[in-house]
C-alpha cells in the first residue's frame, strides 16, 4: 500500500496503510520529527501541520486525507538561513521553555496570520490559539511573539508594495 504525499514541496511515495495517522508518516517514515506527539486525540496541538494552509491535528488525520494537498511541517517553514517571521518572533521573544509545543504553536500562528487581513486583537489570537497547549505556561510571550510576527509580516508586505 502506498500513499502519495507532498510534504514541504517534495513528492513522497510512502509505503504506509492509508489509515495510518499523518503524524506517524511524517515522524517515522519521513523522519520529520519536528511535528510532535502530545496526546493523540487532537486536544493539545503539538502535532499541528498545515494542509493547504489550514492547521490540522496530524495525530487524528489519516495519511490518505492528506493526499493531493500541500503539507507544511515546521521543517518546511522559512528558507534555509532565513526563518519565517513567526519563527523569528518566537525566537526573539523567547516564547518557549521546554520548546515541545513550539512547532505546533508556530504552525497554528502561521495559518492564522496568513489569513488575517487586519490587525488581530488579543481576543482573536487567544480564540484561534486555544487548541494549542503550552504546559510551561509561556502563553504571555507567545501572544507577544504573534503580535510581533504580525507586525513583521505586515512591514514585509508593505515593503513589497
Amino acid at each position: 500500500m502506498a500513499v502519495t504525499l507532498v510534504v514541504n514541496g517534495s513528492l513522497h511515495q510512502v509505503d504506509a496503510p492509508p489509515d495510518e495517522p499523518l503524524l506517524y508518516v511524517l515522524r517515522d517514515r519521513l523522519e520529520l520529527t519536528g511535528t510532535k506527539y502530545g496526546c493523540g486525540e487532537g486536544q493539545c496541538g503539538a502535532c499541528t501541520v498545515l494542509l493547504d494552509g489550514d492547521p490540522v491535528r496530524s495525530c487524528i488525520t489519516p495519511a490518505s486525507a492528506a493526499t493531493g494537498k500541500k503539507i507544511t511541517t515546521i521543517e518546511g517553514l522559512g528558507n534555509g538561513e532565513h526563518l519565517d517571521p513567526v519563527q523569528q518572533a518566537f525566537l526573539e521573544a523567547e516564547a518557549f521553555q521546554c520548546g515541545y509545543c513550539t512547532p505546533g504553536m508556530i504552525l497554528s500562528a502561521v495559518a492564522m496570520l496568513r489569513k488575517s487581513k487586519t490587525k488581530l486583537t488579543d481576543k482573536e489570537i487567544i480564540s484561534h490559539m486555544n487548541g494549542n497547549i503550552c504546559r510551561c505556561g509561556a502563553y504571555g510571550r507567545i501572544l507577544e511573539a504573534i503580535h510581533a510576527a504580525a507586525n513583521m509580516s505586515r512591514s514585509t508586505v508593505d515593503a513589497k508594495r
Binding site: L32, T33, E75, L77, G78, L83, L91, E94
Partner: peptide, 18 residues
C-alpha cells in the same frame, strides 16, 4: 537568550521521543 533557541523554533531539536 536561551541556548539552542533556533533548534526549538525550527523543529530541529531532538527530544527523547525523536
Amino acid at each position: 537568550p536561551k541556548r539552542d533557541g533556533r533548534d526549538f523554533v525550527t523543529g530541529a531539536h531532538k527530544y527523547a521521543s525523536d
